[in-house]
Design a protein around this nucleic acid. Structure first.
Length: 581
RNA sequence: GCCCCCGUAGCUCAGCUGGAUAGAGCGACUGCCUCCUAAGCAGUAGGCCACAGGUUCGAAUCCUGUCGGGGGCGCCA
């Protein structure tokens, strides 16, 4: 149930009525008509721009249209008043009974209040994390993991059929590097002294992998050339790394529906058929690219390569898909992978990349556009860096030295709930400061705590009420008398709650889960405010001494807020706290 | 040189598929605990929404340009 779309539908009815009365001409485009909360609550509960956007096509004064609409809308018993304001806004005030009745709706629908049909069951593939299987996940991956997971949940809640997918980059040279590094650890486990040259991974996390390899194959690969052991060790190592990564994701409560291996594209004809598909469209040719300007390419020399005409689909230059030695570039398997996604019948694709991959956005979009004949939209969300702070000091990491702050480090320090929430309080494309101290601080400026606390307060009231023998089951609260929560301040909270379904749609449409986190903070603020008003105005306290009916009615409102907080936190993957400790 | 992102209160940031007098937290100042958790609430102060044009009934929001910050730019993944 979305009050805003309900009322918008009512406005459109009024427009139609005016058309049949001949006041407005037929054939007006009503798509730009919106019904939204006004910036200033003094203007009312909802405002529509209908009169202003229709004024020009209808060749009438906005205020005249607004007056006519107001006359029609005034007859709806949900609408208490409709007044024309400013340049032609129509401000609507809803009947108090609408707000008083809201908790009943919420408590009847539970977590489904806010669930939307926006997605119409469309199939969406959200690809995220997709870290190279060369080591544990670090903080940067963590943000991508949390973002992708929350986005997937949000889209699911908004009515999409979502697949969470991880693309395993196990086909390139970096897994050979991994294999060599593990081989060194293997030799080490055999008692050899080894040295980690540049271009190997010196991290300690490979020590147990080397040992495990020793336990499995004994000394079979000692003193053997790479050609003997590379393939086996590579497979063994990537499997071990993926196990570590899956375990890291479990720590964050991220669960993938599907893992797609890059390696599975090689030698199976999948890359070839993807490229063939492009060739059929006349988008593959042999050619020589211009050198990039302004970047002084030291060893640049013209080479003829096999190119994808990505410029036909919005890219700046055409991109090589095959090296001059005839091997595929990394872009080729990426094309094949996305071709596979298109073939699997998704209506929409979303890729979550690190911000350092910003240069690949256009070519990937071009590829998907070409492969799907423009039918499958691809949205690429870039995740900016996470800057870590501890004791006010920036926390540095160095992958080269093998010491970096891992996902596990963060989660073990502050827990999955805090990790997830903090990472979702900023837009994906804005850098994020993550302060370990602030993240666990219990104060107003820690949004995790603040929202959790609001939920816990409601739970606290309910415990008190229950102890007093009051039935606070959702079923009982839904039956409570709405008229006993008629105070203006109580309606204020109800109005905030009523925004939830609309917020879900806005956040889902924009692929912006951070909006959920920010809105939850606002909702929590409304609840804390009402709570504190109870200090001065006893009738606003949720628990009314010796008045079961009033208590139930007011607690129903609080409980409705808690239900929505819980649903919102659920999308973010954060557990709502029952009490604070 | 080209492409992408960003520039909003002293600080950290919301708001951006155009809407009325631009918001929140922190910091500063002032109030509120005989009362469901003061781990909270209320209020005051603080702005040329980087700059200049354009589109529009209306621009922080869309377009163009300038300046400033970050990221990226053919065989590397």
């Amino acid at each position: 149930m979305n009050l805003f779309t309900d009322i918008r539908a009512r406005v459109l009815e009024a427009i139609e009525a005016l058309q049949s009365e001949g006041v407005l001409p037929e054939g007006l485009n009503t798509a730009p008509v919106t019904v939204e909360p006004p910036r200033d609550p003094l203007h009312g509960d909802m405002a529509t721009n209908a009169a202003m956007v229709l004024a020009k096509p209808a060749q009438k004064k906005p205020r005249d249209i607004a007056e006519a609409l107001a006359a029609h809308l005034g007859t709806d018993d949900r609408i208490a008043s409709a007044e024309v304001a400013g340049p032609g806004f129509l401000n609507l005030r809803l009947a108090p009974t609408v707000w008083q009745g809201l908790p009943e709706t919420v408590l009847t629908q539970g977590a489904d209040f806010g669930r939307s049909t926006l997605g119409q069951g469309e199939k969406v593939n959200v690809e995220y994390v997709s870290a190279n299987p060369t080591g544990p996940l670090h903080v940067g991956h963590t943000r991508g993991a949390v973002f992708g997971d929350a986005l997937a949940s949000l889209l699911d809640y908004a009515g999409y059929d979502v697949t969470r997918e991880y693309y395993i980059n196990d086909g390139g040279a970096q897994v050979d590097v991994l294999a060599r590094s593990v081989y060194l650890r293997y030799l080490e486990a055999q008692g050899h002294t080894v040295e980690f040259a540049d271009g190997t991974y010196p991290g300690d996390y490979l020590i147990p992998v080397g040992e495990a390899l020793k336990n499995l194959v004994g000394d079979k690969y000692v003193d053997q050339p790479e050609s003997v052991w590379l393939e086996y060790v590579r497979e063994f190592s990537t499997d071990a790394m993926m196990e570590i990564i899956r375990e890291d994701l479990r720590l964050l409560n991220v669960e993938m529906d599907s893992f797609f291996s890059e390696k599975s594209l090689y030698g199976t004809g999948l890359i070839e058929s993807a490229i063939e598909s492009l060739r059929d469209k006349g988008l593959i040719y042999r050619g020589v690219l211009e050198p990039p300007k302004g970047k002084k390419p030291e060893d640049w020399e013209p080479r003829e390569q096999t190119l994808f005409k990505s410029t036909e689909h919005g890219d700046d230059v055409d991109r090589p898909i095959m090296k001059s030695d005839g091997a595929w570039t990394y872009f080729a398997p990426d094309i094949a992978y996305h071709y596979d996604k298109v073939q699997r019948g998704y209506d929409q694709l979303i890729d979550v990349f690190g911000a350092d991959h910003g240069g690949y956005v256009k070519r990937m979009k071009a590829a998907v556009s070409a492969l799907s004949d423009g039918k499958t939209p691809l949205d690429i969300k870039l995740i900016q860096l996470v800057k870590l702070f501890k004791n006010g000091e920036p926390f540095k990491m160095s992958k080269r030295a093998g010491t970096f702050v891992t996902l596990r480090d963060v989660v073990e320090e502050v827990g999955p709930d805090v990790t997830r929430f903090v990472m979702l309080t900023r837009k994906n494309d804005a850098p994020l400061d993550f302060d370990f101290d602030k993240a666990v601080e219990q104060s107003r400026d820690n949004p995790v705590f603040y929202v959790q606390y609001a939920h816990a307060r409601v739970c606290s009231v309910m415990r008190k009420a229950q102890a007093a023998g009051i039935d606070v089951s959702d079923a009982a609260l839904a039956q409570a008398d709405p008229a006993l929560r008629a105070h203006e301040a109580e309606q204020g909270l109800a109005k905030k709650i009523a925004e939830w379904p609309r917020l879900v749609e806005i956040a889902a449409r924009g692929h912006e889960p951070h909006k959920v986190a920010i809105w939850l903070n606002e909702l929590a603020s409304e609840l804390h405010a009402l709570w504190n008003k109870g200090h001065d105005v006893p009738e606003l306290r949720f628990l009314q001494e010796d008045d079961v009916a009033a208590s139930q009615s007011k607690i129903a409102l609080a409980r409705a807020a808690a239900v929505v907080i819980s649903a919102g936190l659920g999308i973010l993957g954060v557990t709502p706290a029952e009490e604070m400790r």
